[in-house]
Structures are given as C-alpha cells and as structure tokens.
C-alpha cells in the first residue's frame, strides 16, 4: 500500500494540464477525486510517473443549467451534486444516485468526472449517464469533441478518451420523467452487486418513453434498449415489467466475485431492475 515515486503536477488551467499530458503521453494521468486512481497506485497496479492534479482548475468546477441543458464540470464533487437545489429540480435522479455512492467523506472528494472517466465498471455514474443520454466533453490539444456516454465505454478501464485528452464537462437535458436509481450493495463503500437507473415518461396511462441502464453487471455499463422497448406502449403492468427485466438480463454479463455467483447476481439484477422500473413509473 505504498505507491512508487511519481512527479506531482498541479496546473491552474486546462492548457497547463494538456501540456503536461502532451509531454508525457501515457506516463501521465490526471487526478480528480482520487478514489479509484490513488488506491490503484498504492497497490502498485497503476504506474503513474506523472500525476496531474486538476483541483486548481476553476473551469472544471460547477453546475450550470440553461435552456433545459445541464452542464456539470468534471471536478464537481458528489457532495456538490447532492446539495445543488437547481440540479435536483432539473434532474433529481442525480441526487438519488449520488447518495448511494460510498459515504459522505468519499463524496466530499469524489467527483463526477473521475467517476465517469475512469471506466471502472463498479462506478455508478457511467450507467446513469447512459440512461440520461449524456454527452462527455473531451478537450485535447487538437480541440474539443463530444462523445455520447452511450458510445464512451469499450471495456473495463478502456474508454473512447485518448491518453492526451481530458474529460472536462458532462451535459445532458433536464428530465421530466419518473426516475429511480436502485442499488444493492453489501455495505457502505462497496460497489453494486447490481444497480439500475430508470427513467419512464407517461402518456395517458401508457409508457411513452423509457430508458434503462445498469451498473456493475458487465465490464461496461449496460444500456438496455430492448428493456425500454418492452415497456413503451404498455401500462407498465406486471407482464410488461417482466418482459423488460427479461430483456435487460439478456444484455448483461455479470461475473462471479466475492459478492456471489452469477446465478445470484442475475436474480438480484432482475429484482433491482423491476424495482427501479416500478419506482420510476410511480413517479412518472
């Protein structure tokens, strides 16, 4: 639990951070809240000769909401997400999910940017961002590009981000839907045994739109379009939820770990998904 030596960089603007990245290539990593990267360095599983701490870059902080579009700076902490009233009004599912991430001490440090950018399948925000159809803003020396969260994740810890890019902001539309973030974990601070984000809108007594995404049930977050399709046009009755769950389970691929074997995880995933849908529908 003693990391190897590293150079510590603390730029005050994005350009400064990009220039360190450009200079050192894959020998450099940016540091956000540090809750994934620092333990990996202490275990000497991540070798990071150059660590670029982003905490002095003011442009990466804060939440703005304009014309129904929410923009969150990558260095915004989970604690700030939870306590931002306008964000809660525009997208209450963020608070509901963030409150299920670890404990207050972790949430004071842990950031949304670090949570989505690291590509850790255990992190909660990637699945939620896919559910929200969020866009990630990536800045590199060659400019800025937008990548949909739904296209960002390739495999565990592997993402669409280039080594020399920094994820600076996340944007998504404010929501007017029933929502739920449902998570089962062994204890505070644990990754999900199974977690599900659900958004459902209503037209009359029928489901108009639906979005269902899951966490830690594959090596990447899983958006299940088939599950959503199974709900749309139904009254979200037992049969429809059952069909949606069956469709979602087709899309996941959990692995056995200390939380339990695959059969258990599949069963629990089904329960968590159905509860997320039911709660979202009750709020639609």
């Amino acid at each position: 639990m003693i990391p190897a030596a590293f150079e510590y960089h603390r730029p005050s603007d994005i350009e400064g951070a990009l220039s360190v990245l450009a200079e050192h290539g894959d020998e450099a990593r940016v540091l956000a809240g540090g809750h994934s990267l620092i333990p990996m360095m202490k275990l000497r599983m991540a070798d990071v000769p150059h660590l670029i701490d982003l905490q002095d870059i003011a442009d990466l902080k804060g939440i703005t909401i304009a014309d129904g579009i929410i923009t969150i700076g990558a260095m915004t902490t989970q604690h700030e997400l939870i306590n931002h009233e306008a964000l809660f009004a525009a997208a209450p599912i963020i608070r509901e999910a963030a409150l299920q991430i670890a404990d207050p001490q972790v949430r004071y440090m842990g950031t949304i940017g670090g949570n989505v950018a690291n590509g850790d399948p255990g992190n909660d925000m990637p699945g939620l961002m896919q559910c929200l159809d969020a866009q990630f803003i990536l800045v590199g020396v060659d400019g800025t590009r937008k990548v949909p969260a739904r296209d960002f994740y390739e495999s565990a810890y592997m993402t669409n981000r280039d080594d020399e890019e920094i994820l600076t902001h996340i944007t998504f539309a404010s929501i007017d839907a029933g929502y739920a973030y449902e998570k089962q974990k062994r204890k505070i601070g644990d990754y999900a045994t199974a977690a599900c984000a659900a958004l459902v809108t209503k037209d009359g007594d029928k489901v108009a739109t639906a979005s269902i995404a899951m966490t830690n049930l594959s090596d990447v977050p899983v958006l299940s379009e088939a599950a959503a399709a199974a709900l749309i046009g139904t009254t979200c009755d037992t049969a429809a939820v059952k069909a949606a769950v069956a469709a979602a389970l087709e899309d996941i691929d959990p692995t056995e770990d200390n939380r339990g074997p695959v059969a258990f995880k599949m069963h629990v995933a089904g329960i968590i998904i159905s509860r997320a849908i039911a709660r979202a529908w009750s709020r639609a």
Binding site: D103, R186, K187, I188, G189, D190, Y191, N258
Partner: peptide
C-alpha cells in the same frame, strides 16, 4: 486470499 482489502473484508460502519 480473496479478502485482502476492506472492499471485500466487511467492517461495518454506523450505517450497517
């Protein structure tokens, strides 16, 4: 040993 860290070795907190 599959339980060498506090992620997998259960130490309850006030929450549990």
């Amino acid at each position: 040993c599959k339980t060498g860290t506090l992620m997998d070795f259960f130490l309850p907190t006030a929450w549990e």
